[in-house]
Amino acid sequence: MLKVENLYVRYGMIEAIKGISFEVNDGEIVTLIGANGAGKTTTMHTISGLLKPASGAVLLDGTDITKVPSHKIVSMGLAQVPERRRVFAEQTVEENLDLGAFTRKDKDGIKKDMEEVYELFPRLKERRTQLAGTLSGGEQQMLAMGRALMAKPRIMLLDEPSMGLSPLLVNEIFRIIKDINQRGTTVLLVEQNAKMALAIASRAYVLETGKITLEGTGEELARSEQVRKAYLGG
């Protein structure tokens, strides 16, 4: 479904991504793990068009989307849950969800999907008229995920969904990611919390200072000596 080929991204003189390639197949959960500054968010922003690569390709169903403006990528079936959630704090929960469905015109479908999001996150339903800025961190994460779901994506990109959340909430969020995947959405997950990410991933890649240094199934990487030392605390 999604294929990244030999991607290079630069910020001025600094090369943040140095020729990475990976792919996400239909129905998979693929995770990209790595430390702070490895280039995870840069990769995500390049896929969703917020950044333009220096060279390389991002193929969505075989079409190169590196030249497509970011607002058109959403309607091609790719939605992103950005790092630090970035919900629209001054709009209500329901308005945030409406914005998630901005590119869609099917009013009935939108209504149905909103009910589904509320079913998945009952807390959001309780708070539907509240401003998003007044929600707790966990609720904001749920809202950011719900908002992405409203675009009815075929593939969902999640950038550090566990950041700043309590262990209990992290478990909850990962359970929901699995649930979303089982309902038919392909997932690309970027995480510092390697343990949780590897536990739910079909396949995983390790990103180190802009290069992919290791790849395998989630289980393989969880057992790998290198990963254990660097990311799982021994």
């Binding site: 950005p82 970035r86 704090a89 675009a151």
Partner: peptide, 21 residues
């Protein structure tokens, strides 16, 4: 109107919603 408010709050996030900034 919602799109305008979204762009004014966070342009990048608005792009991710499919809003043409």
């Amino acid at each position: 109107g919602k799109a305008m408010r979204a762009v004014s709050e966070d342009e990048g996030a608005a792009r991710l919603m499919g809003i043409n900034v």
